[in-house]
Structures are given as C-alpha cells and as structure tokens.
Nucleic acid binder design. Structure first.
Lengths: 159, 159
DNA sequence: CCAATCTTCATGCGTTTGCATCTACCTTAA
DNA sequence: TTAAGGTAGATGCAAACGCATGAAGATTGG
C-alpha cells in the first residue's frame, strides 16, 4: 500500500476523531438531558430505532461500552422504569430489551431537543453535499469496523 | 431551516457516530496497546503533536474527558514517568505538560502499530477522494464544535 | 446421546470517571 | 491599590467502568 495513502487515511481518521470529540463536548454541555447521561440516552435511542425487542449483545454492537457495563446500564434503566427486560423464549440465555411507554416518551422528549442541536451544529458547518458525503462515508467505515480480524487475515492471506 | 435539511444533518451525524463506535471497538480489540488505555494513548499522542509544552486545559479541549478525570489521568502518566508536569512560569495556576523521553518512545511504538491498523481499516473502506472529503468535513465540524453557546446565541439574536 | 466447547449475560472487585467544591492565582475596575 | 469576579487545577466522594470470572443455556462432533 502507498505510503501517502496510509498517511491520508490516518489524517482522515484523526479528523473524524477531532470532530467527534469537539461536537460531543458541545452536545453534552447542552441543558437538554434531564436525568439521562448521554450513554443512557444512546441506549434509549438505539432501542427506539428498532420496533421489535433487542438482545443485549445486539445493543452492545451499537454502543461503545463493555458487556458488563452495558448490562448494568440496562439494569439501571430497567429499575427506573424506562426499559423492560424479558427472557427470550427462543434462547434461554438471552434477554429481550424494549422501551417501556415511559422510556419511549422520554426518548422522544430528549431526542427532539437533541436533534435540534445536532441540526444547528451540522447545518452550520456543512453543505447539503457534504452531509450526504459524510453519511455515505460513515456507512462505509462502520461496515469496515464490523469486519473481524479473522476475516481480514483470511483476506490478506489470499492477497 | 428546511425540515429535510435538519433531518439530513441528523442522519449524517448518526452515521459519524456509528462509524466512530464501530472502528473504536475494532481498534480497542487490537493487541497493540501494551499497558496503555486508549485514553492514555490519546493524551500521549496529543502531547506528541505539539513540540512545546501544553497546558492541562488545552489538552482538555482535545480529549473527551472531564477536567478532574484528565487531571488524574495525567497524574498517573506522570507517576509512570511518561509525562512531565512543571509549573508554568507565566501563570502560577498553570501546569505545563510534556512527554518525557520514555513517554515519547512509548507513543512512537504504540502509535506506529496503531497507525497501521487505522490505515488498514480506512483504506479498505474509502477511496482517496472520500478520505479527502472526510478530512475536510471533520475539520469543519470540529471548528463548529468550538463555537460556544453564547456565541451562537448572540449570532442568532442578530439573525 | 452426551461430553466438550461456545455463547450470553450477570457478578465480584479494583480502577477510573464525573460532580461538587476548594484553593490559588490572575484580571478588571473603581 | 484593592476588592470582586473569573480561571486553572486539585481533591473528596459516590457512581460507573473494565477485567476476570461464573452460571446457565445452546451448539457441535464423535
């Protein structure tokens, strides 16, 4: 692989990281979160995106948190009546997670306010074309992140 | 502001978040970090980017961590001999942070290995053009994140 | 059919984090 | 000059986190 292509890749990644940290700090500072931490909101949001119940390990793929930490975060949300945990009838090990009505309500409230701030920040910085580019790029990067080291190594062995 | 433009902005942001979480998980799983956590590495890397010493609050802008948490993280790195803390002669409140030789060495080692993984993942997912787009977009978003709510409100009041 | 292995989630425990607060220093203005 | 307010960083403490491990159900190979 070309040396400069690798360098460009690292510069692009660093740029993404900087943007992420910068905007996350700004969003965290907004007085819209109520009693929720951003991580808790992230979980409520992820659950709200799916209609059916989600398994804990499926949730774990979307959230940047260790399995035990996520397990306890969900436990706290369940204690607060925002998430419902039920045994999975198809897998005795599994837990099916779903928002309660209160949880859905809360996600809508906070999510609405948060979406306004996201739109404010992003539309102020980017053109429509850039937003479309970012969405496409993010999708490709996320797909790449899913590739396991095993898959990668197998592929490399072939090359 | 147009309804769909706001929606596109939120979709683009969510795409960035998903890519970030996905790749961070992948990078965290790599066996290249030695005794460093990714956050500790992030601090070493940020210090390595600047030749002169950095103030703690300047470091804080780049790192997604509260001021007390960063203060203690730096304290731990100093205890381990990777970072040097010195009083700022120009500001009695301040601390000037710099890598020690050991810290610089460590950053180089881990950073070299990490850069390989970043290049592997990003070049596999994106074209050269997309990498350039991502870098430009990230730069613009980061600049936007720096804008304070006060500045924004003042600006909005004018509009 | 069943032993071995894997997967999913929970729990014990030491470490790290965030919030609130404190101290020390700097800046501003009267 | 000095009092009032602002800023940089450290510290007490409870909450949350990650790692290692455990328990229980699923899966696989002989």
């Amino acid at each position: 692989m070309s040396r400069s292509r690798s360098r460009r890749a690292n510069e692009a990644w660093e740029s993404l990281l900087t943007a992420h940290a910068s905007l996350m700090k700004r969003f965290a500072a907004e007085p819209i979160w109520g009693e929720l931490s951003m991580r808790e909101y992230d979980v409520l949001y992820t659950l709200s995106k799916h209609d059916g119940p989600l398994r804990l390990f499926e949730l774990g793929r979307a959230v940047l948190l260790s399995q035990p930490a996520l397990s306890r975060l969900v436990e706290r949300l369940a204690d607060r009546g925002l998430v419902e945990r039920a045994a999975d009838p198809e897998d005795g090990r599994g837990v099916r997670l779903a928002l309660t009505e209160a949880g859905r309500e809360r996600q809508r409230q906070v999510g609405g306010r948060h979406a306004v701030e996201v739109a404010r920040a992003v539309t102020a910085a980017l053109t429509d074309e850039e937003m479309a580019q970012l969405e496409a790029i993010g999708r490709k990067l996320a797909a790449q992140g899913t590739a396991t080291p095993t898959q990668r190594n197998r592929q490399e062995a072939v090359l």
